[in-house]
Design a protein around this nucleic acid. Structure first.
Lengths: 261, 261
DNA sequence: AAGTCCATCTCGTAT
DNA sequence: ATACGAGGTGGACTT
């Protein structure tokens, strides 16, 4: 059977449904009055109230109240779920090691319970990431400025990776730090560290070669920048270029309706 | 009616259920084959597959796949939900302004739909709160320093409540501000305000009594303190005492099962 | 397994 | 409203 639904089941019926659902690696949903204890990275108690309990086949365990996006209590994937009856009361448990964490749910009244073998073979396709910005700038460097030539991506320095390294039309070195969202003060500091790393390197290597000091330009590339960050950036002589992350999906994927008859 | 459940409803029945659920400010659950588009802070597409859709009365909109703790698509509280039918196809929508964001769900097949008026008046009780710290210090004042004697909790001043008021072994007044997490600059300013309030009071009342100026010590009690806060604290002549919040729950709270008959 | 960094982070709190 | 920081952050990716 692909699914099962029970309305107002007693604790034994609910127990059987959960056991069956777990065995079949189904996704289990309960709407029940329950009490929740959590102990692990933190410690919490939640007294009796009606909540939605979700147990996914990957081991996730979620308890949702009637507000908020986040569950009030949860366990991550690969946790071990279990149901048991003690003194005619149904308990749910989800446990994991490393770090040791345990949720215990005391079920008082189940309004409905169901499990479903979910058929879902699709993954979310997203746009607007930092990587997408990098791809876009790599492909169309004129977005930054006319004559910009990117040379290296993810260039390693002592303090981390420079997103894009390149040269401007005059041959000056350009250090680009990309942010897919509004840039903060930390982004400016990050560039400052990169520039310092580079100046040190330059002093020991590049300068030795051609005997003259090469200009290095630091660029913060983001859709926008915070006021405080802008202030620091100007102090530091770093430039800001406003670039919107690419807001388009790359693939033209099509799935026919027929595949879900 | 407090709840409603439909198995294998058609798109019109589902539409009616959702409309009714939204009107009643209920929590709506669907298990359905659907396609999801999101546009807002980012951009995403999710092709046909079976998912669990949750609409909460606070405006949250969640779409869960059969793995992960986080929903694959969602909208935050205060978003505006809507259901509509177009060309005999049911669509769900959740929209918000600022930032502009929209989810659109095309429903292909509903396996079951239900709404529930959830009764849940409990909030999660976590360990490590300020109150727990206060209890602990009240019970074991030597945690602060040898000879400390707490006298009042939640002492009202013009600018708010002083967490703990007491005296040291020499009879000096002590003003304690508790933070269960890393203390910031605001905590220092807060103590500064309390001290000012107290000095004013003292000048008008206490000093008149015994005719001599009494020393007042301000103490910030927290597991740790930020660098900027530390700097200000030293300037202000306020002291810092490192205290970890108690990581244990007090079990004095009991709710009888009868309250959810 | 442990560390690092991004996120439609969410969520609380203070301004 | 916006800004800032914490989180049982989660989740992807690297070492």
């Amino acid at each position: 059977m692909k699914y099962k639904i029970l309305e107002n089941p007693n604790y034994e019926e609910t127990y059987d449904l959960i056991e069956e659902g777990l065995k079949k690696k189904a996704t289990i949903l309960l709407f029940a009055c329950c009490r929740v204890s959590y102990e692990g990275r933190s410690l919490s108690e939640l007294d009796y109230g009606e909540r939605i309990i979700m147990m996914k086949p990957d081991g996730c365990f979620l308890i949702h109240q009637d507000n908020k996006v986040d569950p009030v209590n949860w366990q991550p994937p690969k946790s071990r779920p279990r149901a048991y009856i003690k003194d005619e009361i149904l308990f749910l448990e989800s446990h994991r090691r490393s770090p040791p964490e345990r949720i215990e749910v005391e079920i008082k009244k189940v309004h409905y319970a169901n499990y479903n073998l979910i058929e879902d073979y699709e993954e979310l396709e997203r746009a607007g990431y930092e990587k997408d910005m990098g791809d876009m700038i790599w492909d169309k460097p004129h977005i930054i400025e006319e004559g910009f030539r990117p040379t290296v991506r993810e260039y390693a320095t002592e303090h981390g990776f420079i997103d894009i390294l390149g040269k401007d039309s005059k041959g000056n070195l350009m250090v680009l730090e990309l942010k897919s969202r509004k840039a903060g003060i930390t982004a400016v500091k990050q560039i400052r560290r990169y520039l310092t790393d580079f100046e040190n390197k330059e002093n020991s290597e590049i300068k030795a070669k051609n005997g003259q000091k090469q200009k290095i330009r630091g660029l913060l590339v983001a859709p926008s920048i915070g006021d405080d960050a802008l202030e620091l950036l100007e102090e530091e002589g770093i430039e800001f270029v406003s670039v919107e992350p690419p807001r388009e999906l790359k693939k033209d994927k099509r799935v026919t309706l027929d595949s879900f008859g």
